[in-house]
Amino acid sequence: MTGRVTVDPGSPMPPYEQLRRQLELQIRSGVLAPGRRLPTVRQLASDLGLAKNTVARAFAELERGGFVMGAGRRGTIVVGPLDGALDRNTLITDAARRFFAEIAPVDPTFPEVLEALKRVVDDGQVPPAQNTSAVPVHG
């Protein structure tokens, strides 16, 4: 699996934090396996339309957390979470739990929630899936 990241400039969360969270989640879930090389700061900054410093900051935070390691000219390499990998399903379930907790005050019905999710995907706010129906989680 190649993996991908999405940054929403309209989000209240700073771009570096959006990036850090998504990368951390993908490392924890095993989408990015230990030994896997990440794109260069320049490539990611260019693709995401971010400043290089923003991407470098996300990488630095991940390195401090023990998720990645700078390997000089070889770039940045995933070393895996220090506290062990988490099950992918657990991560998705946790994210769903947080999502439902956030919308609970509105008391939506389940079809309304599904409809909203579909609208977000159809509006292009979430890029279409590559091979499966998986969508990136923003943490």
Binding site: R4, D8, P9, Q43, L48, G49, P127, P136
Partner: peptide
């Protein structure tokens, strides 16, 4: 502009 995505494939 807007929401931007990037593949993590190294070029």
């Amino acid at each position: 502009g807007g929401v931007r995505s990037a593949s993590l494939a190294v070029r």
